[in-house]
Amino acid sequence: QGDIVVALYPYDGIHPDDLSFKKGEKMKVLEEHGEWWKAKSLLTKKEGFIPSNYVAKLN
């Protein structure tokens, strides 16, 4: 089961498979690959890669 993270900063995706998000948006982490994680937005239901240093895990 994936962790839920919250965006600390907004992110505008650079690549087509990036997931753009707004500050405060919550996402479910699907896979962790070093600095880039695959996640699904709980708001938009879209999936893509996010920079892990832009988010914090919720406990």
Rank of each mutant, 00 (worst) to 15 (best):
Q1P: 13
Q1M: 13
G2T: 09
G2Y: 13
G2S: 11
D3A: 14
D3L: 15
I4R: 03
I4T: 07
V5E: 01
V5P: 00
V5I: 07
V6A: 05
V6M: 07
V6C: 09
V6N: 02
V6P: 00
A7D: 00
A7K: 00
A7N: 00
L8A: 03
L8M: 08
L8F: 04
L8K: 07
Y9F: 12
Y9C: 15
Y9Q: 10
P10A: 14
Y11V: 02
Y11D: 00
Y11G: 00
Y11F: 13
D12H: 13
D12A: 12
D12L: 11
I14E: 09
I14D: 08
I14C: 13
H15N: 12
H15W: 11
P16K: 10
P16F: 08
D17H: 12
D17E: 11
D18K: 08
D18I: 07
D18A: 11
D18N: 08
D18M: 12
L19W: 02
L19E: 01
L19I: 05
L19R: 01
S20Q: 07
S20K: 06
S20L: 04
F21R: 00
F21Y: 01
K22G: 08
K22R: 12
K22S: 10
K22Q: 12
K23N: 04
K23T: 09
K23D: 05
K23P: 06
K23Q: 11
K23G: 05
G24T: 02
G24V: 00
E25T: 03
E25F: 01
K26Y: 15
K26L: 15
K26H: 14
K26D: 02
M27H: 01
M27P: 00
M27G: 00
M27K: 00
K28Y: 14
K28C: 13
K28F: 13
K28Q: 15
V29S: 01
V29L: 15
L30M: 08
L30D: 03
E31T: 08
E31K: 08
E31I: 08
E32Q: 14
E32M: 15
H33K: 11
H33P: 05
E35R: 11
W37P: 06
W37T: 08
K38Q: 07
K38T: 07
K38W: 15
A39E: 01
K40A: 09
S41K: 05
S41E: 02
S41V: 04
L42T: 05
L42W: 03
L42S: 03
L43G: 06
L43M: 10
L43Y: 10
T44P: 00
T44D: 04
K45W: 14
K46P: 01
K46C: 11
E47D: 06
E47L: 07
E47K: 07
E47Q: 10
E47C: 12
G48P: 00
G48N: 01
G48F: 01
G48L: 01
G48I: 00
F49D: 04
F49G: 04
F49K: 08
I50A: 02
I50F: 06
I50D: 01
I50N: 01
I50H: 00
I50S: 00
P51A: 02
P51T: 01
P51Y: 04
S52T: 06
S52R: 13
S52G: 08
S52V: 10
N53F: 09
N53C: 14
N53A: 13
Y54Q: 05
Y54C: 09
Y54M: 11
V55H: 02
V55M: 05
A56P: 03
K57T: 09
L58T: 09
L58M: 11
L58Y: 10
L58S: 07
N59W: 08
N59H: 13
N59P: 12
